[in-house]
Computed example of a mutant assay.
Amino acid sequence: MESVVDPEMEQLFKEFLDEAGGREESAVITSMPGKQPYHYQIRDTNHKAFYLRHNSLVAANLQSDNASQEEKVSVVPNRVLERKRCPLILGIKGGSQGLSCGTAEQPKLQLEDMQLMDLFLKDEEAKRFTFFKTYNGSTHCFEAAAYPGWFLCTSPQANEPIGLTAKPGEAAITNFYFQRK
């Protein structure tokens, strides 16, 4: 078994892939009874949380009364991509909307109505919703599987849409705190 560096991710992959029969038997999996996405609080390194505004995912410092607006990020593993790269299918609203990079020449982060558990069972279709998560001990980065070199990012300014950048480490924030809820 190839391991994932983050112990929580090892648990996620074990629960979804090893107990489901692994990659070899994955073609016969038609449902995942009792399995649910894991849910995480995600904050950028400026502590901005994700929330929905006009059906767009944005980041802001949510205080007191606004804290309930925070969107938890739901994840399931992508069962066909290289496990050691920690491929995660990301969504919000309890896993009923996926974070998609689209299908154009240039990626554009968008929300699509799609059940994460359904995406788990699809192969090629799931790739545009999949991000390779890297973990450096305190923060995490999310690279788009369908667009290598493009990373999930927030703007340094509050209330700006979550996006993708090919220039990590420049103006956009690409490091996130990622905590299971």
Rank of each mutant, 00 (worst) to 15 (best):
R53P: 01
A60M: 03
D113I: 11
S74D: 06
A27R: 15
D44S: 11
K133D: 00
L57W: 04
M114Q: 14
D123S: 13
S31C: 10
P161S: 12
A27L: 14
G98Q: 01
P161W: 04
E105H: 11
K122I: 02
C141L: 06
K108D: 03
H47K: 13
Q157H: 13
K84M: 09
A158Y: 02
M32R: 12
K127V: 13
D123K: 14
R43T: 12
E2Q: 11
L119C: 14
Q115D: 08
S96L: 13
R85A: 12
L99N: 03
E2R: 12
E71Q: 15
Y135S: 15
M9E: 07
E170S: 15
W150N: 10
F151D: 02
E124T: 13
D6F: 03
G163Y: 03
G163A: 12
G102T: 11
A158P: 02
A146S: 15
F176M: 06
S68V: 14
A172H: 07
L152V: 14
I162Y: 02
F151R: 11
A146I: 02
F176E: 01
M114C: 14
A146C: 05
R180M: 08
Q106F: 04
I162K: 02
N136R: 10
P77K: 07
T139W: 01
K14S: 10
M32S: 11
K122D: 00
T30K: 14
L90Y: 02
N61E: 12
R53V: 09
V75G: 01
M9N: 08
F129V: 09
S64M: 05
A49H: 04
I42K: 04
R79Q: 11
V4A: 06
E160I: 09
A60Q: 05
E82Q: 13
T130P: 00
F13V: 04
P33R: 12
I162W: 04
D65P: 04
P7I: 06
A145S: 11
Q69L: 15
P7Q: 07
E25D: 12
P107K: 09
R85H: 11
L57D: 05
K35H: 12
L90R: 09
I162M: 14
E10F: 01
D44Y: 09
L17K: 03
I92D: 07
S74L: 06
Q97W: 05
A67W: 00
E8C: 09
C101W: 00
I162G: 01
R53G: 03
L99A: 07
S100Y: 01
R85M: 13
T165F: 12
Y135A: 14
P107Q: 07
T45I: 15
F142P: 00
F142W: 02
V4H: 01
N175D: 11
K108E: 08
F142Y: 00
D18R: 13
T103S: 13
V5T: 14
L164S: 08
V4G: 02
Q157E: 15
I89V: 13
E82F: 06
S31F: 05
K181G: 05
F131V: 07
Q41F: 10
M114T: 13
G21M: 06
R180V: 06
E105W: 06
W150V: 06
H47G: 03
A67K: 13
H47F: 08
Y177T: 10
P37N: 10
E143T: 05
I42P: 00
L111I: 08
E15F: 03
